[in-house]
Simulated scan of single mutants.
Amino acid sequence: MYNPMYYLNSSYDGYQSSEVAQNWRIRTGIAQGDTANATEVNLALALENYGVENLDFATIWGQGHTMAELNGNGTTNFIQWVTENETGA
């Protein structure tokens, strides 16, 4: 899935051709150099416009593109988030 906008934006042929997950957690560092800062913002906005209701999005100051977290580490925080959303906590 190189371009998720293919499924989320009506300007693409793939729009509404796939079931989009209803739970999203997106973290991105504001000090990234390998992609535009707007990439994740555009994804979050497209998901919101598509109707995704459980969207947990944050930019993290002073960190890079991957594994950006305010505290802890990405793996542990993601597993905790999944667990919380599984049980409806």
Results as ranks from 00 to 15, higher is better:
26 I>N: 01
2 Y>G: 15
63 Q>H: 03
23 N>C: 13
10 S>P: 07
33 G>H: 09
64 G>V: 02
61 W>D: 15
59 T>I: 04
89 A>D: 12
60 I>H: 05
82 V>G: 08
45 L>R: 14
61 W>M: 13
18 S>V: 13
50 Y>R: 04
48 E>V: 11
8 L>I: 02
46 A>Y: 03
76 T>C: 10
64 G>F: 07
25 R>N: 03
1 M>K: 14
63 Q>A: 05
56 D>G: 02
55 L>V: 00
29 G>N: 03
61 W>S: 15
67 M>I: 10
38 A>G: 13
69 E>L: 02
72 G>N: 02
47 L>N: 01
30 I>D: 14
24 W>I: 00
1 M>G: 12
54 N>G: 04
8 L>C: 02
88 G>R: 05
6 Y>I: 12
12 Y>M: 01
81 W>K: 01
30 I>Q: 12
69 E>R: 07
29 G>W: 02
72 G>Q: 05
59 T>Q: 13
47 L>R: 05
13 D>G: 13
19 E>H: 10
44 A>E: 05
54 N>D: 08
54 N>I: 03
41 V>H: 09
39 T>D: 14
68 A>D: 05
6 Y>H: 07
85 N>R: 11
22 Q>M: 07
29 G>D: 08
20 V>Q: 06
71 N>M: 14
87 T>A: 08
53 E>N: 00
69 E>P: 07
60 I>L: 01
26 I>H: 00
44 A>N: 04
44 A>I: 00
14 G>F: 09
4 P>V: 03
63 Q>Y: 08
58 A>M: 12
55 L>P: 05
11 S>F: 02
10 S>H: 09
5 M>R: 03
85 N>G: 09
80 Q>L: 03
59 T>M: 11
49 N>P: 09
18 S>T: 12
36 A>N: 15
40 E>D: 11
45 L>G: 10
23 N>I: 10
74 G>D: 13
52 V>S: 02
77 N>G: 08
13 D>F: 11
59 T>Y: 10
27 R>S: 04
7 Y>N: 03
67 M>S: 13
44 A>P: 01
10 S>L: 08
